[in-house]
Simulated scan of single mutants.
Amino acid sequence: MTAAGQHPRRLDDGEMATWLPVIRFVQLLPQVLDRTLKEEVGLNHARYAILVTLAGQGEGTVTMTELARIAGLSRSRLSHALDSLEERGWVERTSCSSDKRTLSATLTAEGREMLRTAAPVHVEQVRELVLDPLTAEERAQLEAILSKLLPGVTAAL
């Protein structure tokens, strides 16, 4: 309720026409990516995102806090996913040498190999579902729009 006791402003028809496809897309895309990765390589999308994030760090390690932030996962969801990845030999967790309470994760050689297997499946689907239907100009517009919106969403986490 607003100060005047009225309901917050509702979305008008034009705003709703913009908003509904956004909701549908952000709900469906992860499900489709997840299903395909599971079917093709036995890896869900959240775990794939963790492997990609770790691979992007080169040979370095990433703290759990930083990994959760980059991958967009809660600490508990990240911990559960890392348990699974560690059991498969794809990730190794270690304590920080200066602070034993701080855990870090590193991608193993086996994890890099899994990523080499999964990446083509993921890339093909990203191109098919997101990039190929758009012109180069539309891709640039999408990048600009999302770059403008992401900071607000990230800050709200």
Rank of each mutant, 00 (worst) to 15 (best):
E15S: 00
D99V: 06
T108V: 10
T94L: 09
H7V: 09
K100E: 05
A144F: 00
L149T: 05
E138K: 13
H122N: 12
R69W: 09
E87C: 00
L33F: 13
M1C: 08
A144M: 04
L131N: 03
G72H: 12
L115S: 08
K38W: 01
L85D: 03
F25T: 14
L67H: 03
L67W: 04
R127K: 14
R35K: 15
D13S: 09
A136K: 14
L85P: 00
M16A: 09
M16W: 11
V22M: 12
V123H: 04
L85S: 02
E137Q: 14
R112L: 07
V153T: 03
P21L: 13
S98T: 10
A49Y: 06
E92D: 01
W19N: 05
S97E: 06
D13A: 11
E143Y: 11
E66F: 01
E66N: 08
E15F: 02
G60A: 09
R10Y: 06
S76R: 15
H45I: 08
E92F: 04
G60N: 04
G56I: 05
A49M: 13
S84N: 08
Q57K: 13
T117R: 15
R35G: 05
L29C: 05
T63E: 01
W90C: 04
A17R: 15
L103Q: 13
R24Q: 12
P21V: 12
M114G: 01
T61H: 05
E124I: 06
Q31D: 04
R9F: 05
R88K: 15
H45S: 04
E124N: 15
A3M: 14
T106V: 15
Q141C: 03
V32K: 13
L33R: 15
A3R: 13
P120E: 14
S95Y: 01
